[in-house]
Amino acid sequence: MLRRTIDILGDFFVFTGQTFYWMTRGVTHRKNWRLLTPQLYEVGYKSLPVIMITGAFVGMVIAVQAVEQFRAIGMEERMGSIVNLSVVRELGPVLAGIMLAGRIGGALTAELGTMNVTEQIDALRSMGVNPIRYLVAPRVLACFFLTPALTLFADFTGAMGGWFVSVILEGIAPGPYWDYTQQAVTTFDLYSGIIKSFFFGAALGLISCYSGFYCKPGAEGVGRACTAAFVTSFIVILALDFMLAQVLQDIQTAFFGFQSLL
């Protein structure tokens, strides 16, 4: 069991290394660019609606939860700070990452898994084409760059969702709502959310492609790989979030000192 886990981790790191090698080579070789465009469309454009809906609901839910508490202490005008900070710094990136692990990761694992069990990956190799360069690098690259881009959209609709509940439904004055938001949410908060989402994108892309690339034979193998890839991506995103939150918090405190939200 332990031996197997170590073997899989070893394979995964080799796979990651090769993917990064071909990702960097890919940028410099024009021939590889045409492989990237369909992936950008698939990962980016097609995920946009679902990401924006996710963001909007996150913002609305936090606002619904927060409004009672803030009202009880008579500080509902300050709500914008906590709602928007949560969206931009934590929930936007994490939930967008998890949403993409399902939406994109599932599709990637199923696609590469099917190619694996029907010998299409072997066929590529037999024709002297490196499948990591041809299949994996453009897909991981698309996840790496588009997860942060999509997170920005989730942040935006999240802020709109929070505003809708707080200002439109709960009648909080918009002026103070945005003033307190501006005070609380710094550029660093926005960056730290985006920095995290680069990691989430790389993780979900690599895990999903790896799972498909090495899945067991048959339709059953592909199905299992999809489930395993999603569960793994999910856990890894949460674990990365925990570690990065810690690191980014330390950096922020070191550079800007402690800031109270209230």
Binding site: M115, D122, A123, R125, S126, G128
Partner: peptide, 23 residues
Amino acid sequence: NEQSLVPIRRRMGFLFQMAALFD
């Protein structure tokens, strides 16, 4: 390694059992 096999594989053609056409 895979890279050094490329020139050799170009001299070979492989008809796979399940055809393995790219969908």
